[in-house]
């Protein structure tokens, strides 16, 4: 990818994403409903709400540590990501710690990820 970012190619504007029902969309055109409906079709994956609790600088340049409260049990999960890494916020769309960098590197329209934002994440469906 000519993006200058080490993020996967599917985050670059124009990438083609296949939803669970087979429909194809560009990554920048995805809506909250696309993820919810795809998860409903999925036999293994379910959508969890992950609320941003903290965003801290990492010791690694251009990385941030994002702490989430995941699911109904509010489990604490921290991830270290590039500051341009886009998360999908419910009802809002792509958001990152540094939206300017996301837009510059990936051309993906993006807003600022903030404490309190509720992101879409995945967990396994209960297989019991």
């Amino acid at each position: 990818a000519p993006s200058g970012s080490s993020l996967p190619a599917y985050f670059i504007k124009g990438s083609i994403i296949q939803l669970a029902d087979g429909e194809l969309k560009h990554v920048e055109d995805l809506k909250t409903e696309d993820f919810i409906q795809s998860a409903e079709i999925s036999s293994e994956l379910k959508i969890d709400s992950s609320t941003v609790e903290r965003i801290d600088d990492s010791h690694t340049p251009n990385f941030a540590i994002v702490q989430f409260s995941v699911g109904e049990h509010r489990a604490q999960v921290s991830v270290e990501v590039q500051v341009e890494y886009p998360f999908f916020v419910f009802g809002q769309g792509w958001s990152s710690c540094c939206p300017d960098r996301t837009t510059q590197l990936l051309e993906l329209p993006c807003t600022k990820l903030s404490v309190g934002d509720v992101c879409i994440s995945l967990t396994l469906k209960n297989l019991r």
Partner: peptide, 19 residues
Amino acid sequence: VPVFPWHSLVPFLAPTQSD
């Protein structure tokens, strides 16, 4: 042109199951 599955885009945040 590569086609990516929708779930590639979503972080997999799996809390430790306690129940």
